[in-house]
């Protein structure tokens, strides 16, 4: 078993090193792309069972975005939805023998948090303009600028640490138990790890939506209050 805080390259192309999380991510991307193409090539107004299930997933994501962001989900659906689906599948990929979840590595979680950080800036500028986005750091008073700047960084770091800590710890515990006990002993822990993975995917996606909503909702006091309330409830 490798150390959880280090990422060993599987192979290298010159100076470029390819690690296992990247390969697993590529495999997940191929799986999701193939599944998406196959599932959506024959869509109709009278849906099949698979189409109905997929539409339910999309509508659930839309509903969550609409509830959290108080906005139409169209511009944010792909980003929030992809975060949720990718993190969920990445967390559950630990069920495959010999596969370690990409989210159990700090680089993947940092990449996801970096994307959320950039998305917050992008959506904030698109919603309020560059000046409006910068002014949001001075809300409610100018004195809050340092704290808001720190908060922008720390909340992204919290995303990284939360996801990494939960997934890595699960993988680590299962590995330890598997090395100490029999083959079937870690199964309850694996089931718990599935639940943890789903919850963490949901939390990461919801928090991303909350952060984006907090940026685009400047000038909308009610939405801001709702967003703060939602963030306080988040574990």
């Amino acid at each position: 078993m490798t150390a959880p805080l280090t990422t060993e390259p599987l192979f290298t192309f010159g100076p470029v090193s390819i690690s296992a999380p990247v390969v697993v991510t590529w495999a997940l991307m191929a799986f999701l792309l193939a599944g998406s193409v196959l599932a959506t090539r024959r869509l109709s107004l009278k849906p099949s069972t698979l189409q109905a299930a997929l539409e339910m997933v999309v509508e659930t994501i839309d509903g969550q975005i609409r509830d959290i962001m108080q906005a139409e989900p169209g511009p944010y659906r792909a980003f929030i939805g992809t975060l949720f689906i990718y993190i969920l599948l990445a967390n559950w990929s630990s069920l495959m023998p010999g596969v370690e979840p990409p989210t159990a590595h700090l680089e993947t979680d940092a990449a996801l948090a970096l994307l959320v950080f950039l998305a917050v800036i992008l959506f904030g500028i698109r919603a309020n303009g560059p000046l409006g986005y910068l002014k949001s750091f001075a809300a409610p008073t100018v004195l809050m600028i340092p704290l808001n700047l720190v908060e922008t960084i720390t909340r992204s770091l919290s995303l990284v640490v939360r996801l990494f800590g939960n997934v890595m710890s699960g993988v680590f515990v299962i590995g330890i138990v598997l090395s100490l006990a029999g083959l079937f002993v870690p199964i309850p822990l694996m089931a718990l790890d599935l639940l943890t993975g789903a919850v963490q995917a949901y939390i990461f996606a919801v928090l991303a939506a909350v952060f984006i909503a907090g940026t685009i909702s400047e000038g909308r006091p009610h939405a801001a209050e709702n967003l703060q309330t939602s963030e306080r409830k988040t574990p």
Binding site: M29, L33, L115
Partner: peptide
């Protein structure tokens, strides 16, 4: 990868 996946899922799934 995640950026590409966002585009792919947005284009072919969502």
């Amino acid at each position: 990868n995640v950026l590409i996946l966002i585009w792919l899922l947005g284009r072919f799934f969502f």
